[in-house]
């Protein structure tokens, strides 16, 4: 019981740090966004699928400058997995053309087998809602 509560704290803290870093880099330093993903990441942006970070990064370079305001986030351990985490985010995003939209974004974070202790975004589903 104690063990699991320690692990849930690790997950909660990890997810909190991830959400903070992710949107900060997306909004201010998008050239580094590939650090969160890998070539086998599945990324969906408003119904447009990207297989792997290379193609998605090309796309993000064309997106106008953004400001994400996170209103809610929450995380859960993925049942049936070794150590995967599901992170759920809702908020508002403004682009430099002054359009403001609400968004829902969900991430599946998985341990990176090639780098001990590292996680990466294995699945990413983003929608204007």
């Amino acid at each position: 019981m104690e063990q699991s509560s320690i692990y849930s704290n690790v997950i909660n803290n990890g997810a909190t740090a991830f959400v903070e870093q992710y949107y900060k880099i997306y909004d201010t330093n998008r050239g580094y966004i590939d650090g969160f993903y890998k070539e086998n990441s599945a990324i969906l942006w408003n119904g447009n699928p990207f297989s792997g970070i290379t193609k998605y990064k090309e796309f993000t370079q064309k997106l106008p400058v953004s400001t994400h305001k996170v209103e809610t986030f929450d995380c859960q351990q993925v049942i049936g997995s070794e150590k995967s985490i599901m992170v759920n985010v809702n908020g508002e995003v403004s682009y430099s053309d002054h359009s403001t939209k609400q968004f829902h974004q969900n991430f599946i974070l998985m341990p990176d087998m090639e780098k001990q202790g590292n996680y990466y975004v294995a699945h990413d589903c983003f929608r204007f809602v």
Partner: peptide, 22 residues
């Protein structure tokens, strides 16, 4: 409704359906 869904592999023997609906 808007629905995005695909299959994901979370462990060697475990495939799940990942379903987002707004």
């Amino acid at each position: 409704f808007i629905i995005d869904s695909w299959q994901i592999n979370v462990a060697p023997q475990q495939i799940l359906i990942y379903l987002n609906i707004s």
